[in-house]
């Protein structure tokens, strides 16, 4: 039976979707404390696409790769609970301040280090930036084709994959030889829930630095339970040009950030007059609430 080596790219993000009135502080800055860090939603759809391949081709393996701070190990564990076989946390101070291009470069270097893969799957975009750039940029850096906006894998064999893409107006079915990078839409099937047995097995899985941080007996636990060790890679573990990493390797710079200050609760009464509604729409556009 065919088996596939799958890499799933995932990101831990602040949950910006359900920001209510308390998400912004009175001074107009983002209240990060009320925003939990979560598994980027479309990356979960990507994981489900990978798990469905594994359902059909039992000997396939799923490696979850994430780049971020040490805390991002949480989403690797989340991936283990749902069926991922392996997880790698790419973390290093040198990655700090990366824009999408520097992120893609670091991820592509880590993927070259993993070396052997048939399919890379990731979410279309992350909810904190909504850029949808990292997927295509990783594909370009690796010199492989990309299939964006995947809703479903229609068929797969050792040579070729057929994918249903969700576009603005309709759908497109495309075929491509492996290896390929696929980005997954939120219209794809939602990820299956955690598996209770896997949760028991992996709940203590972590990386070495996290283990040291909490003062646990890392060596003792690692020798007897190797599945609890999550790989942690820094720049010494990948072959890379450090000039292309982090802030220095990022062509885009943030010049300025304006916070959107939402109005107070006092309601404003507006008459059904051309002038009044014109003023309202202009006010909403100028304050970036719409438009």
């Amino acid at each position: 039976m065919d088996a596939f080596k799958i890499i799933v790219l995932a990101k831990q993000v602040p949950d910006t979707r359900n920001v209510g009135k308390d998400a912004m502080k009175a001074d107009g800055t983002v209240n990060r404390a009320v925003l939990p860090a979560i598994f980027n939603p479309e990356d979960l759809h990507a994981l489900e696409v990978a798990l469905r391949i594994k359902d059909l081709f039992k000997d396939s393996t799923i490696t979850l790769l994430t780049m971020g701070p040490v805390r991002a190990v949480e989403i690797l564990r989340e991936g283990f609970y749902r069926g991922a076989d392996d997880g790698i946390l790419l973390t290093d101070r040198a990655f700090a301040g990366s824009d999408t291009l520097a992120t893609s470069y670091a991820l592509s270097c880590a993927i070259r280090e993993i070396r052997d893969f048939d399919i890379i799957i990731c979410g279309r975009q992350a909810i904190d930036g909504d850029t949808a750039q990292v997927g295509p940029q990783v594909a370009e850096k690796l010199g492989i084709p990309q299939i964006t906006y995947c809703e479903e894998i229609v068929s797969l064999n050792k040579k070729q994959v057929t994918v249903k893409r969700r576009l603005e107006q309709g759908v497109e079915i495309v075929a491509c030889n492996l290896p390929v990078l696929i980005t997954v839409n939120n219209s794809a099937a939602p990820c299956r829930p955690r598996n209770a047995k896997r949760l028991m097995k992996y709940k203590h899985a972590t990386t070495m630095s996290k283990q040291q941080e909490t003062g646990g007996d890392y060596l003792a636990s690692s020798s007897s339970h190797t599945h609890l060790n999550i790989k942690e890679w820094g720049i010494s573990n990948i072959k890379c040009d450090t000039a292309q990493l982090g802030l220095a390797g990022s062509p885009t710079k943030v010049k300025k950030v304006d916070n959107i200050v939402f109005q107070s609760k006092d309601s404003k009464r507006i008459e059904d007059l051309d002038e009044d509604i014109g003023i309202l729409m202009k006010e909403l556009i100028d304050s970036h609430i719409i438009g």
Binding site: S267, K268, D272, D274, I277, M281
Partner: peptide
């Protein structure tokens, strides 16, 4: 609902929305 609304437009939906559409188009860049 007006008690929790930030803006209350008093009028009929079928009159107000076309105006909102028109002035959104006029004011967007």
């Amino acid at each position: 609902i007006n008690k929790i609304a930030n803006y209350v437009i008093q009028g009929k939906v079928e009159n107000v929305i076309p105006k909102m559409i028109r002035y959104f188009k006029e004011n967007s860049k």
